[in-house]
Design a protein around this nucleic acid. Sequence first.
RNA 1: GUCUUGUUAGCUCAGCUGGUAGAGCACGUCACUUUUAAUGAUGUGGCCGAUGGUUCGAAUCCAUCACAGGACACCA
Length: 505
Amino acid sequence: MFDNKFVQQRIEKAKLLKEAGFNPYSNQSKRNTTIEKYLNVNSDIADMEDKRDEKRHYIVSGRIKLLRVMGKASFVKIEDESGMLQVYVTRDNLPEDFYNTIFKKNIEVGDIIEVGGFPFVTGKGELSLHVDTFTILTKAISPLPEKFHGVTDKEIRYRKRYLDLIMNADVRKTFQTRSKVISLTRRFFEDKGFLEVETPMMHPIAGGANAKPFVTHHNALGIDRFLRIAPELYLKRLIVGGFEAVFEINRCFRNEGMDATHNPEFTSIEFYWAYKTYKDLIEITKEYFKYLFEHLNLPTQLPYGEMIVNFDNFVEIPLIESLTTIGGVPAESCNTKESILAYLKTQNITVKPNLNLGQLQGELFDEFVEEKLIDPTFITEYPVEISPLARRSDENPAITERFELFIAGREIANAFSELNDPIDQLSRFEGQMAAKDSGDDEAHEMDKDFVEALSYGMAPTAGQGIGIDRLVMLLTNEHSIRDVLLFPAMKPINNDHTQEVVESE
RNA sequence: GUCUUGUUAGCUCAGCUGGUAGAGCACGUCACUUUUAAUGAUGUGGCCGAUGGUUCGAAUCCAUCACAGGACACCA
């Protein structure tokens, strides 16, 4: 480590600074303003006659991003979290020899410094800081990426996110937006009277969704645990317990493939609302988006890649209807297994054998409808076969009181009136067990403890899950989930070949 | 999991049908007291992702592997 020539050179500079009495890792910061505040407070300087006010004095800190040395004067761009500031450093305004022997020889791009001085506007019109005190706070011994192109290599950006954040202001902005989305979401539901709760991340049974779990081991009890694939069944136990509105924002884990919209750990909000139905969820979802857009100052005609998504146009349509009106599937090819299979054959689409009617309708939807749903669309009335935890419609027992929300061709939320009939829930679980026995390894697990909870009576309840990562992607116009996760999952790098051989034997 | 495209200096990238490894930025040295990716001069910096093969000769051709990007599949 640190055998790179440039790193060695900078280590040497740190040593020289120390020998000259300047601690290259000082923590004696005297900063009294941020760059953003400095620029705001001194915006009046431009209107002054001599464009300077030597009576004001500020101390700012930041990382050197650009350095222009011109003999006895230099311009340095420093950046803190709030912004970028140009500071003007001259030989004659600093202690004797400091400029020549310390500043010019041992300070460079990447270092974190603290400067004090007065505000002025340069000949080219830029509000700057005229430096009279200069402190080195932190010496960077590794050089930063190139100043103009920055770091663009995606592998470096994801593995060394700190470099990405140093170099790319828009990346910082994306993650600031992500943070705002989460805190606005929390505030929205709290203001509605929801209680934020924390349920286990390690489950004895991985339930609440159809997905493969990660397995870990609990030594004290000598049993395996599953990282949760969804918090759903625990949140509903809380409704049984008498809480009437709960939500949880946290991570779920799924042991499946990774791509532009899937990371093994991802963040969701799930909320459950007693004495409500999925119809109420449609309304609160519209309200939620309105709230987010207002507080994030986003246009309701939101650009996403090549698309413009119209958030003034929420659409609601039953799944079967969407197959024909949006998907273009002939109406007579939607209602029986035989007709759907025949239609899929004409479209050269092959599906797994032995799918039931509901699953086949789901296939038609995935194939012909999903990607066409650009404006926010609530797809309602899902077949019961693909909705093991949702309440049946009173009018039509083949469908459930459920919707999924699609935006820009992607699923953003899944919601339904909850199944609270313990006998029905038990038989749905049994149906899932049968599917599991016949080879569907993603079928839902039996959870008798949950059925028992329902047996004590769960008030009629509606519940919803929203994928926060995909939502943030939409709101920040990012097209890979890795670009909205600070540290996306990456394969570890292993350069040690001997170790690799030992491990594989 | 399959297909496909990458991997060359700290970073951004050239390097043709095989013939001694290139540029810009950064860094060193010199000049320069209002610059804006400052400028001019000059210099340092490489296990060309790894391993094997073909060849007189491989960054370049072939194979395997590693990692990454994209697409598909799986999955919500």
